[in-house]
Nucleic acid binder design. Sequence first.
DNA 1: GTCTATATGGGGATAGAC
DNA 2: GTCTATCCCCATATAGAC
Lengths: 202, 202
Amino acid sequence: MGIVGRLSFKDQAFKLREQAVLDATTRMLASKGYDLMTMDDVAAEAGLSKPSLYKHFKSKDELATEVMIRLLVDAQDYLARQDPALSPLDRLRDLLAWALRVRLAGGLPFLPSTSPQVRSMLTRSLRYVSRAMQLHQKLKGIVEQAKQQGELSADMPTDVMLYSYYSRTCDPAVEYLRIYGRYADEDIIRHMLAVSFKGLSA
Amino acid sequence: MGIVGRLSFKDQAFKLREQAVLDATTRMLASKGYDLMTMDDVAAEAGLSKPSLYKHFKSKDELATEVMIRLLVDAQDYLARQDPALSPLDRLRDLLAWALRVRLAGGLPFLPSTSPQVRSMLTRSLRYVSRAMQLHQKLKGIVEQAKQQGELSADMPTDVMLYSYYSRTCDPAVEYLRIYGRYADEDIIRHMLAVSFKGLSA
DNA sequence: GTCTATATGGGGATAGAC
DNA sequence: GTCTATCCCCATATAGAC
């Protein structure tokens, strides 16, 4: 039984509404980006008024940060539920495919964006940074396992691999392939995985 | 003799000032991004007043677009001056290294950003789109040459390769490597080239 | 063409009624 | 806690003097 079950109906409704707001924010962030997204947009999309929105989240920054934290938690959950039979490299492949699928379904890339504004906003949030570090350490472990098993090259530094890996989740090539290349979502994922792990060379 | 040589001293000074404004804008875009960059920032950085700035460029959009066009022209120039002895794949490597070097020196990635705002701004500019298409066709030709010579895999679609290639010029991994990895610029370029062309797998 | 000073509008955030 | 109506800053863009 989840914690929600112990709350009053009113509080349950409040929590549900909060999730609806986070969903709406996710859609707006994905379509317009942080700077163009207005609190009026979010309120309209979530079906409440702006002052009510501010009862749940005390600023635009906090709202966006909560969305990103939820995404990190989702990624951690996904990792925890992966088939234990997968090899380290396959786990990385599978997680990247999941992240790309989320994004193609209208979600967000889980490395947020290159906007200096958004980055500084997130790095000011202790909860975000702490979650990100947890995930980073977990993935670092998987990369190191993959190296030991010879699935990843021991020559390339682990952090280079990890940062490049994160970048693939927000790779703009995804959108170019969809818009100009007119590829189906699963083809995009297949090609992105190929480029990421095998590179461009023959 | 350049066109500038036929202008009056006054017009020459005007043109030079315009270039200084574009340089200042490039620096501001690189550091703050489009949304956070204000026209006051640019005016201060370039050493003139805001109204004077508007005598040169009639809007913030136009100013940023001109910066991006100049960057595309620079890339075309660089391509045109590459050593003709280079193989197609080496030309691609060399151009990417140049783009990353420009960015690390405080310039801009030549694929601008994933901001929907900036993208729509640029796609509304006929001059920008036309330049981008020219460069795209040129690079497409080089990729096809590389495929014919077996330097690039014939299996992967050309547009997948090209969009992924463009994405590397704005890859956020570059900044993570500099900030958290504390790598020197040339090491970053070396690693980025390795990841881009050889991929993450062993 | 360059400046000082100002108009305009949008969006984050809130007051106060219910 | 939710709404209507409002505040207020800030950034784009311009008026008008020199």
